[in-house]
């Protein structure tokens, strides 16, 4: 019973990691950039939702929609201003810019909201649902259902739509995609927009689960989601989901049965073991350079 409870907790937090990991993995797949500012989009999304709910008194749905829209715009702006001009340069340049953007977001929000943590309003005042004698919080169920739904929708979008095909083409070979008449800039922007919107949803769900938000709150889930993406195979969408769930469950089981202190170490340990055994991640493909 306890195992089951921890498993469900793991799925809860794991599906949030998975949502955020999708943003990392999509961006990495297309522009080969580790977007370190992705974690801070979670922070922005949480603050926007918090302000709208607590101060403007908007309902949960409206706040979440506004947060998604703003984060999407932020993601696209970020890409256009900070990453696009550097696309032809070595990747480490965009990586440093990403770190710069991350610091900028954190410090701006520190100036506006102060460095102190603030409470995140409770979204649902609904009693826990009882399934087979096990009480499951509504937010847990909601998170898992929403995340899995979104992941399936994204997968369908990338597989079946024209834009999805363009995204796959650009990630395969940006130059060739451009020659085939694909608007690379639009495709990259759409990728950042989708990633950021998913991060905003992840942010609201994350803050509902851990209802205390601060300007640096994005780093930890950001880092873990990134690791989830790598674990599953970076650049592969189902990999990000799988990685997120593995991370969440491993973390939750370690917390429940070994020590809450060691949870992070176990998670990173799993990552290192996986990379040693299968360097491209669980679902990743190994690509060979042509000589």
């Amino acid at each position: 019973m306890i195992v089951l409870r921890q498993l469900i907790n793991g799925l809860h937090v794991g599906s949030i990691y998975a949502l955020i990991a999708l943003g990392y993995t999509m961006v990495y797949g297309i522009v080969k950039l580790i977007n370190f500012a992705h974690g801070d989009i979670i922070m922005v999304g949480s603050y926007v939702a918090m302000v709208l709910m607590a101060q403007a008194g908007l309902p949960f749905w409206a706040a979440m929609a506004a947060s998604m829209a703003l984060c999407g715009i932020l993601g696209v702006t970020m890409e256009r201003v900070a990453y696009k001009p550097l696309r032809s340069l070595p990747r480490i340049n965009s990586l440093i810019t990403a770190i710069g953007v991350s610091l900028l977001l954190q410090n701006t929000s520190q100036l506006i909201f102060s460095p102190n943590p603030q409470p995140f309003p409770t979204a649902f005042k609904v009693p826990p649902v009882s399934i087979g004698g096990l009480d499951i919080g509504f937010i847990t169920l909601f998170t898992i259902v929403v995340s899995v739904g979104l992941m399936l929708a994204l997968q369908a979008f990338v597989r079946a739509t024209k834009m999805g095909k363009a995204m796959r083409a650009v990630s395969e070979d940006m130059g060739a995609a451009q020659l085939m008449g694909i608007n690379v800039n639009t495709t990259v922007s759409v990728t950042f927009a989708i990633g950021s919107v998913l991060a905003a949803i992840g942010a609201v769900l994350y803050s509902s689960a851990y209802p205390s938000i601060a300007p640096t709150m994005g780093s930890l889930p950001g880092l873990k989601a990134f690791i989830a993406a790598v674990l599953g195979g970076i650049g592969v969408l189902p990999g990000a989901m799988l990685g997120g769930f593995i991370m969440g469950v491993a973390e939750s089981l370690t917390k429940g049965f070994i020590s809450s202190q060691l949870a992070d170490a176990v998670v990173y340990g799993i990552l290192i073991v996986v990379l040693l055994v299968k360097p491209s991640g669980i679902l990743g493909r190994r690509t060979n350079e042509k000589v």
Binding site: A82, L86, N93, L103, Q106, N107, L111
Partner: peptide
């Protein structure tokens, strides 16, 4: 001190954009 990290992060971005 309130603004120094802000300045630092802006410098970092500007530097990469204009002198990569």
């Amino acid at each position: 001190s309130d603004y120094r990290m802000l300045v630092y992060s802006l410098l970092l971005i500007m530097m990469m954009l204009f002198r990569p």
